[in-house]
């Protein structure tokens, strides 16, 4: 599904990603761990096409397409979803309006009919229920006044509604309380654990990986993947820290 080869990316003048390679196949769940400042969010933003994140070398192919040639919204329509480490507030725009317009823009780009208001509300209710999010919250402006944990949960509601092929979830577990973590973990499984989908979890903690069992765990340090392994690698990291392992 996603092939990243020798990816180099700079932010501003600074080179952050320095030859990162990673392949994710459909049906797989990957976890990326790594020290603060290693470049994990940079990887997510670069794949999402964020302006200012410049690829200087390497390639990324998504479902056979040159991902890096696409605009951010085209990448979204192609099926790429980013769960943000710091979800953004959009005052005056309700979550429902935001999601309906976004989803229908994606559908239009894929040549699908837009969802009617009724269809959309039904979908939103279903996904909100899955993440135990009150529909009233979805009527409020996007992330405005949401607590840290609510924002993260809202990202997952959005993922449920948008129903992407590949989700890059950047520290979705940070800031969640114990119950919320379980709800979010189960939500990720329900939405994304399917043979035609894949997930890349960026996380610092084993507790998320207990809920969403990864098939592969990678350690990102110094802008590259320095070690890969199975689920057991995460446990090893938790015990010994990055320095010993990577």
């Amino acid at each position: 599904m996603l092939q990243i080869e020798n990816l180099h990316a700079t932010v501003g003048e600074t080179a952050i990603l320095k030859g990162l390679s990673l392949t994710i196949n459909a049906g797989e769940i990957h976890a990326i761990m790594g020290p603060n400042g290693a470049g994990k969010s940079t990887l997510a933003y670069t794949l999402g096409g964020r302006p200012g994140y410049e690829v200087t070398e390497g390639s990324a192919t998504f479902d056979g397409q040159d991902l890096l040639a696409l605009e951010p919204h085209e990448r979204a329509a192609a099926g790429l979803f980013l769960g943000f480490q710091y979800p953004v507030e959009i005052p005056g725009v309700s979550n429902l309006q935001f999601l309906r317009e976004s989803l229908n823009a994606q559908r239009k780009a894929r040549g699908q009919e837009p969802l009617s208001g009724a269809e959309f509300i039904k979908l939103a209710k279903e996904k909100a229920a899955l993440l135990r999010m009150d529909m009233e919250m979805l009527k409020r402006p996007v992330n405005v006044g949401f607590s840290g944990g609510e924002k993260k949960r809202n990202e997952m509601v959005q993922m449920g509604i948008i129903d992407p092929k590949l989700a890059l979830l950047d520290e979705t577990d940070s800031g969640l309380d114990i119950d919320a973590l379980r709800i979010v973990g189960e939500g990720i499984n329900a939405i994304m654990r399917k043979p035609d989908k894949a997930v890349l979890l960026i996380t610092h903690y084993q507790r998320l990986l207990d809920l969403v069992k990864p098939d592969f765990v990678h350690v990102l340090a110094g802008g590259r993947i320095v070690r890969s392994g199975g689920a057991e690698l995460a446990l090893e990291l938790e015990e010994q820290g990055y320095e010993a392992v990577a």
């Binding site: 933003y45 999402g48 096409g49 964020r50 302006p51 605009e71 951010p72 919204h73 990448r75 979204a76 329509a77 979803f81 980013l82 943000f84 979800p87 953004v88 959009i90 005052p91 005056g92 725009v93 309006q97 935001f98 999601l99 317009e101 976004s102 989803l103 823009a105 994606q106 780009a109 402006p141 959005q158 948008i162």
Partner: peptide, 21 residues
């Protein structure tokens, strides 16, 4: 970027944010 990552073109994203404002 947030709005575009969800699927909106730049112009639609601007329109959405402005309408919110």
């Amino acid at each position: 970027f947030y709005a575009m990552q969800r699927g909106l073109s730049q112009e639609d994203a601007v329109a959405l944010i402005v309408n919110g404002f």
